[in-house]
Design a protein around this nucleic acid. Structure first.
Lengths: 250, 250
DNA sequence: CCCTGGGCTTTTGCATACGAAAGTCTGTAT
DNA sequence: ATACAGACTTTCGTATGCAAAAGCCCAGGG
């Protein structure tokens, strides 16, 4: 997923006809319809925001972004519209776009919303999952436990994400899945500095959750997921507080 | 709205006319930023979609919309971006925008999501509401019961919406409030043809809910709201089925 | 009769142009 | 030195222009 814009000036063809600049050559081009540039711009900007190149509060000048990505202002503007709706940037009339600067309260609210959405998805998943799905869940669980044993942090994060995503998918509720994906991405962004996996406890909870889903016990699955996500929320809160103390003391 | 009627005369910057500093010092400088056209276009299109002028599945030609609204294609395109993100239209690359055509499954999924979100908002509201808030809730409740007694359907719908909105506001979770607002608008659109209020039962449930909130009993408030929204969902489902039968039989 | 393909029309996607608003700087008067 | 007014600069918001993709129509062949 690394389609970063090259730092060098994109040798702008700029003679009359457009050339696809730094973007446009996505590794995933299996789609019949070539994705419009605005989509590539959107992807690039989300990436730049998440990886911190574009910092919260920063003013995004359309022309700069356009040149950085080797396109004109128009696709940038269209991407910004979407980014605003999804909460990544704020658009102030006649002033332009600013990378959204989340307050502490907002970040926590987002965690709360994610918690209830994931809890609901666990409930639905318990009602939907068949034996094959459950087998896949255990597979992911084993993978996570292996990563845990190996101290493989990246693997842990990735497996955790895939496990939750699979449960969401199992829910069979596409609207829910979309919302969770969006909220989750924002949560991860806000909490990037402290987003280490919780480790053993977390995976014990996962196992409990999978058992409930396997049993088709929606109430238990819901309860377990709720506890799980609320603990994650609590952990984040503690770590943020600790980080804040460190900052104020040092 | 077309403010480019006169021929362009490049060369004179003409930055002279500015209406700000000429007048004396007014102590109150109410700087009201004019909403961009794209906002007006967005509002207009949502209205046209909700009121059925633009029908589900219909192809929206940018130029037609632009002429209809008296603007150029550009603000229309930007509005369409937002409309897509919010689920009102589908944007197909190189084909344009189509008014979103919800499947039955999707509509029901939205009701499910709305249900959990509102349930969560009731839980939070119960933890947050003070005596004054509760008084306001009872006020709305009385207003609803009056409308019920008067067979005032519009008043019933409006008061119901305000009651739910107030509870959402009481939750103190802005992220949640935004999501609910969005989901709710789509739900109302989908179910417009059958969206009569449920009437008496519904308001009895409201009263029960308010009592729980007044008592600060978050668990009960949550439970009651969940039952309430799930019943609404069930009612919609029944009505849709009935309407579908009528259609197929006639 | 149905399928097919090549030109014509429509519509999108992107680029560019330009007026206007917001922000910035500078010189002057107090 | 400070505060303010006015120009200067930057950036936004919108309109317009143009090439390419998609859709359409109709003639010709299986």
């Amino acid at each position: 997923m690394n389609h970063n814009a090259s730092p060098a000036t994109p040798g702008s063809p700029s003679g009359r006809r457009r050339g696809r600049g730094a973007l446009g050559s996505s590794p995933v081009q299996r789609v019949q319809r070539p994705a419009p540039l605005r989509q590539a711009v959107y992807d690039a900007l989300v990436e730049l925001i998440i990886n911190g190149t574009l910092k919260p509060g920063q003013h995004l000048v359309e022309l700069e972004l356009a040149e950085l990505l080797g396109v004109s202002r128009q696709p940038v503007r269209e991407a910004l519209q979407r980014l605003q709706t999804e909460g990544w940037v704020d658009l102030r009339p006649a002033q332009g776009a600013f990378v959204h600067l989340p307050t502490e309260a907002e970040a926590d609210q987002l965690l709360g919303v994610r918690s209830v959405l994931e809890t609901y998805s666990a409930r639905l998943a318990a009602q939907q999952a068949d034996a094959q799905d459950v087998e896949r869940l255990w597979e992911l669980q084993r993978e996570g436990e292996r990563a845990l044993a190996d101290d493989d942090v990246d693997g842990l994060v990735s497996t955790n994400a895939r496990l939750h995503a699979f449960i969401t998918e199992l829910s069979g509720n596409a609207v829910l899945a979309e919302l969770i994906a969006l909220v989750d991405r924002r949560v991860r962004w806000y909490y990037t500095p402290i987003a280490r996996p919780r480790g053993h406890d977390s995976w014990a909870e996962h196992a409990e959750l999978i058992r409930a889903i396997a049993a088709g016990d929606a109430d238990t699955a819901s309860q377990v997921m709720n506890r799980h996500t609320e603990r994650t929320r609590q952990t984040y809160h503690e770590r943020r507080t600790a980080a804040g103390d460190e900052n104020t003391s040092g």
